[in-house]
Design a protein around this nucleic acid. Structure first.
Lengths: 136, 136
DNA sequence: ACAATATAGGTGTTATGTACACCTAATCGC
DNA sequence: GCGATTAGGTGTACATAACACCTATATTGT
């Protein structure tokens, strides 16, 4: 839908920034990082998300904190304040059993989605049929 | 986020219906179908979407009609009323040059997304490291 | 002749998710 | 003491999806 020009990647790179409010898959990526790290907190996740996001855009920090809260409300993660160590207190998150299962669900959904998208790309690049060309 | 139980696929099939308001990719799928068909109208697209949607859910008819209008506003498709033939009048859509380009952009974006998702799935199914297990 | 169904194209409203801007507070380095 | 870094947010507007509901024109069955 290209409402604005992408400031991060310029107009040559086919990034997703210009395609409207594309879903950023913050929830599944956060669940995966929590699985890999064992435990973390928002500020740390914010940096790690750079390398693990599914789309090209930086995942917005406000969205991240709200996603963590929502995951906790739904029982997928649990948190506690950690005042030990250097710097300001951190709210440390861990996956719950239910959160691990939810990640598995996401994996199944994204596996399916990934295949559908590959099929889409193949079809989109096929030359148009003679009938479609005539109807155009 | 599983706000409700999926009515279409039951609770055993890992469909995307239960994962919250997942992006349905209506815009790119509509662009692809228009490319394949040469020209079509909303009611016909509504049926064709069943077989081409990227997610498991049926694409909602209200969303479809609004998407077609938005695509026209942005210059990606053009339409005209067709009163010939049987049944009520149809608003017939065709891709514009710009619409074809927009479809190519979508293909590039979804190709990238598809690869990221495949990587995600692989990572999500990896056994947790001993460090992560200890931190849990 | 008339009712039910299929075809066709919508609108209204709410919920969910993203984007961008802005804020508070503790601690660290100098 | 003071700016930078670390940490965790909130406010608000906009985009998209979900669900419910509506209008009108043919076609088909009885």
């Amino acid at each position: 839908m290209r409402k604005r020009i992408c400031a991060r990647h310029g107009k040559d790179y086919p990034c997703s920034c210009g395609m409207g409010n594309l879903y950023r898959f913050v929830e599944p990526v956060v669940l995966l990082l929590l699985k890999m790290k064992g435990k973390t907190y928002g500020y740390d996740l914010s940096a790690a998300l750079e390398g693990h996001a599914l789309t090209d855009t930086t995942i917005e920090k406000g969205v991240l904190y709200r996603t963590l809260r929502r995951l906790e409300t739904n029982g997928n993660v649990k948190s506690e304040w950690e005042t030990e160590g250097r710097g300001p207190a951190r709210r440390v998150y861990r996956l719950t059993r239910q959160g691990e299962q939810h990640l598995e669900e996401w994996a199944a959904v994204l596996e399916h989605l990934s295949k559908s998208m590959t099929r889409f790309v193949r079809d989109a690049r096929k030359p148009v049929t003679s009938k479609a060309r005539a109807d155009r």
